[in-house]
């Protein structure tokens, strides 16, 4: 199991990494099994984005954003926290282990933390084993299936 590299969808807010070195690592040197999806703010993340990733077969989802009260858009991460953490319990309900969803709220001085968090999360996913993919063939669209 240990050599299995779980597919991770990594939603990153545009502003949460202060050190240029970290941002460079995320932008250029991310391992192949991790996919970076940049959004302007965690508040931009529609729960459907996460659902899409999960349906497509992502075994884990990481959402990294700024520390509450240090949001680039004043209160975007607060809205995200309300919306997405509520959503994570829904994910649990439909059979997707809540432990496969991780929120990382980064402070300006957390240099290098994102690398540690991602490694740790990967480790955790390996422990959990491969996910029973929620069967889906089509991306979801709000208001019904996308044709």
């Amino acid at each position: 199991m240990t050599d299995h590299k779980p597919k991770i969808a990594f939603f990153q807010c545009h502003w949460c990494l202060y050190a240029p070195e970290d941002q460079e690592w995320v932008d250029r040197r991310l391992p192949d099994n991790i996919r970076l999806i940049k959004v302007p703010c965690t508040g931009r993340i529609d729960p459907l984005f996460v659902l899409n990733a999960v349906q497509g077969g992502a075994e884990g989802v990481v959402i990294s954003g700024c520390l509450p009260e240090k949001c680039h858009y004043k209160e975007g991460n607060l809205a995200a926290r309300r919306q997405l953490q509520e959503f994570s319990s829904f994910m649990d309900y439909i059979g997707y282990d809540e432990a496969r969803l991780r929120f990382v709220w980064l402070d300006l001085q957390d240099r290098g933390r994102i690398q540690r968090e991602l490694a740790d999360f990967e480790n955790q996913l390996q422990q959990l084993g491969s996910a029973e993919a929620l069967a889906a063939r089509q991306p979801l669209e709000e208001g019904g299936a996308h044709e």
Binding site: C41, R44, D46, L48, G56, H72, A79, Q83, E141, G143
Partner: peptide, 30 residues
């Protein structure tokens, strides 16, 4: 253009043009 309105909208009536539109993000995931 932070896009919070787009994430909150329940009738899919509000969108952010260009890079961070719903279509582009979903497409990149798929």
């Amino acid at each position: 253009a932070c896009g919070m309105c787009g994430a909150a909208c329940r009738s899919n009536s509000i969108s952010i043009p260009a890079d961070y539109s719903d279509e582009n993000v979903v497409e990149s995931i798929w």
